[in-house]
Design a protein around this nucleic acid. Structure first.
Lengths: 136, 136
DNA sequence: CGTCAATACTTGCAAAATGCAAGTTACTAA
DNA sequence: TTAGTAACTTGCATTTTGCAAGTATTGACG
């Protein structure tokens, strides 16, 4: 029978979660995505200065894991917007736990507007939009 | 003025939390400590087979971060027991968030008795105790 | 006394991940 | 044609991981 046991280490939920987002950058990308950032440039520029090759790699992994979704928002020069899937949004609880713990036990740290309001639907304004505004 | 800004990346609570426990093993050690494991051998043997050098390193880091506490429980051959500080216990909420997320979104995973009951005060029985049992 | 066994770590070294800088591709405005 | 922006990719040096084996301490056994 198909025993279906692709677990790297064990069946522990914690261990397997860490195999997906247990590194120093993945959850920061998810955090920024929750905050409303959507393009590669926004993620690369605004964060804690994640190296661009790491960002590209994390986005690929997170997409493969079904946590982020990549959709083209423009055709001519194909540009992609990254958004969280329900699975990715659910990581907000983990983020929130980290925020609470960090704020309480690491003096000086603070939460950057961890509100659910920032996940509203806006278009990737400015940047690439500016281009075709003049054309018509 | 003493601006006190020892932050590696930013003042974000998430980023700083990840700088402390944002790797694949640290939280698993905390998990096992929450489950009642206390000695180096128990941690090394029972887990998802953490390499022993990594375990030693993580215990040092977690101790330096004020998350675990190392206390001798025996003098002759000095043996240490590792326990969680309040700061370390508080990571239980983060673990719990991971468990919930993992169980929901990673099929097949499960929580290993994540009960707070296991943190009661027992002695590091067996192991080193067996030795002097025969003496009397 | 010599050897074995157990606990708790270290050390060596190959393999993988990370981080910085620079390059590439696509396309458009001037 | 030149310059500029967005989105990546590539090279390479440094760091971290992981596996295996070794070390140190002490009691047990013969």
């Amino acid at each position: 029978m198909s025993t279906a046991k692709p677990f790297t280490r064990s069946a522990c939920a914690v261990a397997n979660s860490l195999d997906v987002v247990g590194d120093k950058w993945s959850l920061l990308v998810v955090r920024d995505l929750l905050h409303g950032k959507r393009t590669y440039g926004e993620l690369a520029g605004s964060m804690e200065r994640i190296p661009t090759n790491i960002l590209a790699d994390r986005l690929k992994r997170l997409e493969a894991a079904g946590i982020v979704q990549r959709t083209p928002y423009q055709q001519q020069p194909v540009r992609y917007a990254y958004t969280l899937t329900p699975k990715g949004c659910a990581l907000g609880d983990v983020l929130l736990a980290f925020v609470r713990w960090g704020k309480k036990y690491i003096p000086g740290t603070l939460a950057l507007n961890q509100g659910p309001a920032s996940v509203t639907s806006e278009e990737p304004k400015a940047s690439a939009r500016r281009v075709r505004a003049k054309r018509e």
